[in-house]
Write a protein that binds this DNA or RNA. Structure first.
Lengths: 257, 257
DNA sequence: TCGATCACTTTACAGCATAAAGAGTCAGGG
DNA sequence: CCCTGACTCTTTATGCTGTAAAGTGATCGA
């Protein structure tokens, strides 16, 4: 992996992100692919087999080429992932109806964004620090800020709300994605997993009910279905909506000031 | 890595998590280490060099042994990470003063939890789906729920608030941890990184100011220091406090019902 | 036609988790 | 007292990973 990206590298990846066209004719054989082809193939691999299966060899195999040939189109794997990220973020809706108010718009934004993360779970593994500064990611950010600006909140508060929203949506999606991934890769359903663990717990911590009384209480009282796995998806969807509601109540309270 | 963990494996890792003592005397040489020694050494490695540098070889080297010898004490790397996680979560405070109200208690909880994540950033890479069911993690969860129960909120809402809080604190800490990690491993400061990117942006997207007007507005208006790197840490700390305030306003609104 | 340039392949390296097999060490049973 | 089985720990090996380095052959401008 790349350990130090100098300034020249910064320009190169930015050029790729922004689709800066190559200038004139050059000697040598014509490229058989474009960097877009590589990005597209990599997204297919990551969607189908997960980020863990995304290797230069796997992407190259899908394109009928060797791993090393990809380095003609893309500086390295890190940069390829950045390009994949920006591409997917570019597929998100870029504007929301505001006639029903900012709250409804944010709810729609959250649902779309969450759906996108669940369709491409590997996106959640791209760090938010030193963000990918491509057109897709910037447009997505612009869309969210655009909705929130209509609340009339001051910029510092609004910025906090932006990170609150994105961190929450990412975290919630991450949990669902991880659960699905675990079920797929271990072949053990959530229910089986839970059954084995709770049996072991009962044996190893007989004082469980008293020692973790509050946890037991919330699990018993909040789960609509007794004996269910903790991450039953319909239950998780409802919880997402509730949590988002609490968050937006907080925003509303700040508007009242 | 382990692909399928059967029921026997579940019992074994749970026994390790709960510190179930081995029974009687056995033939063969005495073990030179305990699984706790391995976990401790692994935490030191991960704290000092990051999760990416956590390998069985590195842990073994610190203990003066070969990588394979660790498999005597721990089923595999995945399970070792679970043990590390539960150990660190067990270091968190287990009760909070409630005389000043639940809100102050949650603020203290959030500060402690965030500090713990920043001291051991690799903890954030442990998935929340199929959580580690050890005493440390369960106690931490119990502490949080215990504070929130004093709000009198109904269990389903309270559960949503729990995930909202944990997802937010984790996400916020993750961003800071990633930024620090990037600075360390690339040798490029945030300021340098930002300078190189914004120069490239100006060249590649001359219409930036109009095309991403809302993003530009919030960056200009919210940052107290002009031309500063986006993730200046004091700025991020303030944003964390503001966002937590908004979140807790939402909880308060729900209590009023 | 020549030399430069580029696409692409082959080979190689260091590092990873861990399976498999072997070496040495210690206990209880004969 | 020795043997057998169990146990710790090491050595070796397998199949992955990203990518550096060098080589092959095609294609262009001069």
């Amino acid at each position: 992996m790349v350990l130090f990206a100098g300034q020249g590298d910064a320009l190169r990846i930015m050029r790729l992100l922004w689709g800066a066209a190559d200038e004139g004719v050059k000697p040598g054989p014509k490229p058989g692919l474009t960097s877009d082809d590589v990005v597209e193939a990599a997204i297919v691999v990551a969607d189908e087999e997960g980020m863990g299966a995304l290797s230069m060899r796997a992407v190259a195999a899908r394109l009928g080429r060797t791993a090393m040939s990809l380095y003609t189109y893309v500086p390295g794997k890190d940069e390829l992932v950045d390009l994949m990220y920006d591409r997917v973020m570019g597929w998100l809706p870029t504007s929301y109806e505001l006639d029903a108010g900012w709250r409804a718009a944010i709810e729609a934004w959250a649902a779309d964004t969450r759906r996108c993360y669940l369709r491409h779970p590997w996106v959640l593994q791209v760090s938010q620090a030193r963000p990918v500064l491509g057109p897709g990611g910037l447009t997505a950010m612009n869309t969210l800020v655009g909705i929130l600006r209509t609340t009339g909140l001051a910029a510092p508060e609004l910025r906090a709300v932006v990170t609150l929203l994105t961190d929450f949506v990412r975290g919630a999606a991450q949990t669902v994605a991880d659960a699905r991934q675990a079920a797929r890769s271990t072949g053990e359903s959530d229910a089986d997993w839970w059954a084995a663990r709770s049996a072991a717990l009962a044996e190893l911590a007989p004082d469980f009910a008293e020692r973790f009384a509050d946890v037991v209480w919330i699990e018993r009282s909040a789960a609509p279905v007794a004996e269910s796995a903790p991450y039953l998806e319909t239950q998780v969807d409802a919880m997402f909506a509730t949590a988002l509601g609490v968050l937006l109540d907080g925003v509303e309270a700040r508007i009242g000031e």
